[in-house]
């Protein structure tokens, strides 16, 4: 499913070169539940961005669903993101002017899906996350947990193979956070690959597999 070989990412800061990732090898199979953990500055965000096709590698190879991603144009990457990756962010990143349903439909708009089918799918996704009665609410009329559910429904809209959750509970209280994790894990058990990026070891413990990053390198990997 996801295959990184000798992936490096470097940034030039004046005369200095900063390595955000060094020779990372990582293989994630379809349907896996994996946590990427590490302190800030460890390179986990960079890794997430590369896996999520938001960023290109400096060196190395990245294959997603068997296709080489490195070197694709920005627009091709956008199409790959749209079709393959569902993002769940710490701060939800819902568009404030759109209601829940319209937020969920957004990736479908970019996928070129027709209106009737968008309606149907957004309805199904919002029902799946338990918000069938909140479809026409704007984000500011929803609680944090509800917002994150909308975001998850949006991430699921194009039926992506991979859910990429970046600190999905970071802005939620413990109880709500647990509910959201439960929802994500349910989705994983239904077959969606779940990649959880966090700095919280307790949260990472829930994943069946965990890799720990430090200074741009995988320093530890364990399977539960």
């Amino acid at each position: 499913m996801i295959q990184l070989e000798q992936v490096s990412k470097e940034y030039r800061m004046g005369s200095e070169t900063i390595y955000a990732l060094r020779n990372v090898n990582l293989r994630i199979n379809a349907g896996e539940y994996i946590a990427i953990i590490g302190p800030s500055g460890s390179g986990k965000s960079t890794l997430m961005n590369i896996i999520g096709c938001l960023d290109n590698t400096s060196r190395g190879r990245y294959r997603l669903s068997g296709n080489a991603v490195a070197g694709l144009s920005g627009d091709r990457l956008a199409e790959v993101r749209n079709a393959t990756i569902g993002f769940v962010f710490q701060t939800f990143n819902l568009l404030p002017r759109l209601n829940a349903r319209e937020n969920v439909e957004l990736p479908l708009v970019y996928a070129g899906v027709g209106k009737a089918e968008r309606r149907m799918r957004s309805h199904a996704m919002l029902t799946r996350v338990g918000l069938s009665d909140r479809m026409l609410h704007k984000p500011n009329e929803l609680s944090g947990g509800q917002r994150q559910r909308v975001a998850i429904a949006r991430a699921l809209a194009t039926d992506p193979a991979v859910l990429l959750a970046d600190e999905p509970t970071g802005a939620l209280d413990t109880h709500t956070g647990r509910e959201i994790m439960g929802l994500l894990e349910d989705l994983n058990s239904e077959g969606t690959t779940l990649i959880l990026v966090t700095h919280d070891p307790e949260l990472a413990e829930r994943a069946r597999r965990m890799i720990r990053l430090r200074d741009g390198e995988i320093i530890h990997e364990e399977t539960h």
Binding site: G52, G74, D75, R81, N93, L95, Y110, A111
Partner: peptide, 16 residues
């Protein structure tokens, strides 16, 4: 800017 970032993450191409 953030909205644009979100849209891009969700699959908006440059021309979108």
């Amino acid at each position: 800017t953030r909205e644009i970032g979100v849209r891009m993450a969700l699959g908006a191409r440059r021309r979108d």
